[in-house]
Design a protein around this nucleic acid. Structure first.
Lengths: 220, 220
DNA sequence: CGCCCCGGTAAACGCTCGTTCAGGAGCTCT
DNA sequence: AGAGCTCCTGAACGAGCGTTTACCGGGGCG
């Protein structure tokens, strides 16, 4: 009770520039991320989330229309940022599909190691949103996959990749899905206390991806 | 045991006829599998499951002590069968680690395509069990991973594999996890109406796995 | 036949959920 | 000082949950 008032007075006593140091809407987002990741959307209650940021249940509805909207909000922002990071990594990698693939996998894996809580929620809890809210997230995922497919196609056209074939033909989408699955689910078991650092994980996965698509060595 | 006698005796008098005449405990298992896979354990109610097999809520407790025990029952049996299938595939594959790896991946992928509903539940819903029930399933998963690690170690020792290295050293467990992730999550998007049949998926994934571990061609 | 028990039904029970709402504290502006 | 605003509190609501319980019909057996 009195603890709460203290927190408020501290934040409001600061200068104008620091007034928005940690607005409650951000605290709610962070608390929801952690709890959704640790226990799953359906079993985390509104009361749990709000208690974690020192508020009561009703205060949630000053910032979000519903628990459902809160989930969509944090998933959508995470997904958009992932798409941005991946595309930027490719853009900075030159025009060699081998370098593009390596840069893409590295960026993707590093992000899924470092922001594993956010990635976990975005990948695992998406099914709880109703159909109208899930479409734009699915679109972003398809966009990422298609970026990867485009890299594979470019490498194939310039004879830099030798993809595995089924019945004599390549299947770019399936290979892309396999590579993405591998990288995505790092977030389900990687821990910062593990044997490998984020960059080591990224390098290992990039090497495996290059091998999987039969990339010819860049210097030969 | 003697469940066949029950099935035979029941199947005589049927006005409905088309409904399956198997024992109710099996009908409950099947209905629970489907509903857990489609909507997730926490949001599927006991009433949903029992209505799907033409019974009422209370009848569940004539066969299972709780909803939690039902989930553990179906996950544990699925996991045990997966472990059995994988080990059998390796045993029948001779003693060449390359053939063992390919056989393992093929069996694993085929199973996750064909029984994708069961695999989905076993992999996604395990977190809802309380800690005491989850330990034996985690042990089975570790056993499967360790089987894969053993194959990698054997191939490495006989110079049949050239694993990707981080800082000059191999990390067998991480490579094994990466390969397993790739194969496991086929069940999350593969559909029987897709472009590739189960055996084509299995062959593609086996080829990618062999490439990832740098397997030398068997005939050279 | 009468009895019993197995496996079903349907109505509770206690609890927790997401959401709403009337009221109030603290801020800014005049 | 006081109006008006934003934001939070805490009780309330209706619904739905897993589980328990009282009751009941039908087949096997003395």
């Amino acid at each position: 009770m009195s603890k709460r008032r203290t927190m408020r007075s501290v934040s409001s006593a600061s200068a104008v520039g620091e007034r928005e140091a940690r607005p409650p809407v951000e605290a709610i987002r962070t608390a929801a991320f952690r709890q959704f990741a640790e226990r799953g959307y359906p079993v985390v209650t509104v009361r749990d989330i709000m208690k974690a940021c020192g508020l009561t249940q009703g205060a949630l509805y000053n910032h979000f229309r519903s628990k459902d909207e809160l989930l969509h909000d944090i998933i959508a922002s995470t997904q958009a940022e992932l798409e941005r990071v991946c595309k930027q990594a490719i853009a900075e990698a030159g025009d060699d599909p081998r370098g593009q693939l390596a840069a893409f996998v590295r960026a993707y894996v590093v992000r899924h190691c470092r922001l594993r809580v956010e990635a976990l929620v975005a990948n695992r809890e998406i099914s709880w949103l109703d159909a109208s809210r899930v479409s734009d997230i699915r679109r972003s995922r398809r966009a990422i996959r298609d970026v990867l497919v485009a890299i594979l196609a470019a490498g194939l056209e310039r004879d830099l990749f030798v993809l595995p074939k089924v019945d004599g033909r390549e299947d770019l989408k399936t290979v892309a899905m396999a590579l993405l699955d591998q990288c995505t689910h790092v977030s389900m078991w990687y821990g910062p206390g593990g044997r490998l650092a984020e960059e080591q994980m990224a390098a290992l996965y990039a090497e495996m991806a290059l091998r999987s698509v039969g990339a010819t060595p860049p210097t030969s």
